[in-house]
Computed example of a mutant assay.
Amino acid sequence: MRAILAALAMLCWVGAAQAESIVLASTTSVENSGLLARILPVFTAQTGIDVKVVAQGTGQALATAARGDADLVLVHDPEAEAGFIAAGHGILRREIAWNDFLLVGPKSDPAGIGGSKDAVAALKAVAAARAPFVSRGDNSGTDALEKRLWKLAGIDPAGQDWYRDIGGGMGAALNVAAGLDAVTLTDRGTWLAFANRRNLVELVRGDARLLNRYDVIQINPEKHPSVKVEPARRLAEWLAGPVGQAAIGAYVVAGEQLFHPDADAPHP
């Protein structure tokens, strides 16, 4: 597999002097984790299509596409994606990979949640202990899941002195959590690629509610006539096809696979 990917990465594309390019509005996690920097050059070498990534929280990425400022989106919030498609902005959603979310926090574990597989019970314990918690607060897929988990816990943490809403990306949230010895919700890909952990460790994992699926959605050209339909379609199909899926599955950090390709067996 690695030999095939390496060979593809070395391909030289011969075409027009001006390479075709598209804009991919993407969730920050596939950017912060290093995945896109690893796999998109393979796609470009194979097709000659340059991909310009606009990395934002899922809500912002979908808003960018809804304004007509992207040719394709790669995001991870099924509820927001359904609304985007229902509004007529997106067509042909494909699930291309999954990993999971984690609750991470200081080794001292002031809320006593380490080793738990129940994310909702863990948040109740965090609130009861008034343990510092960092929220992205950026309308991202991660932020949306966190808000759903707090709702399931029957707790509104907004405005509490132990709850820090930073309005930033995943990397920023992890940096703040590391500085404050706080708990935060993170996707596994960004966590594994994150170097500034200090005292942070994994505390809660394995809850089925922490599944993190990644979907690529093509933009509806009837609503957005300026979209570059053909090159965007090629990238979507490449990500869901055998070469793209192999590239996603081959991305490893510290000996651990960050994303699991699943275009052939998407989650319901």
Rank of each mutant, 00 (worst) to 15 (best):
L8Q: 13
M10V: 03
C12D: 13
W13S: 13
A16N: 08
A17H: 09
A19D: 04
S21H: 06
L24Y: 10
S26M: 04
S26Y: 03
S29G: 06
E31R: 13
G34C: 07
L36H: 02
L40W: 11
P41F: 05
D50F: 07
K52N: 11
K52M: 08
V54E: 14
Q56D: 07
G57F: 03
T58R: 09
T64W: 04
A66W: 00
L72H: 02
L72K: 11
D77I: 00
A80Y: 01
A87N: 13
A87H: 06
G88A: 03
I91P: 09
R93Y: 00
V104S: 05
G114P: 07
G114F: 08
D118L: 06
V120L: 01
A122D: 08
A122F: 03
A129K: 12
R130D: 05
V134G: 08
S140P: 14
G141Y: 08
T142Y: 03
A144K: 13
L145N: 04
L145A: 01
K147L: 12
A153P: 12
D161V: 11
W162Q: 11
D165I: 12
G167I: 09
G171V: 08
G171W: 05
A172D: 15
N175R: 15
A177M: 06
L180I: 05
L185Q: 07
R188N: 05
L192P: 06
A193T: 02
F194E: 07
N196I: 00
R198K: 15
E202S: 10
A208G: 11
D215Y: 03
N220E: 01
E222A: 15
K223N: 06
K223C: 05
P225I: 10
V227D: 06
A232K: 06
L235M: 04
A236V: 01
E237A: 14
A240P: 15
A240G: 14
G244I: 11
A247P: 15
A247T: 08
Y251K: 07
Q257Y: 00
F259M: 04
P266E: 00
H267N: 12
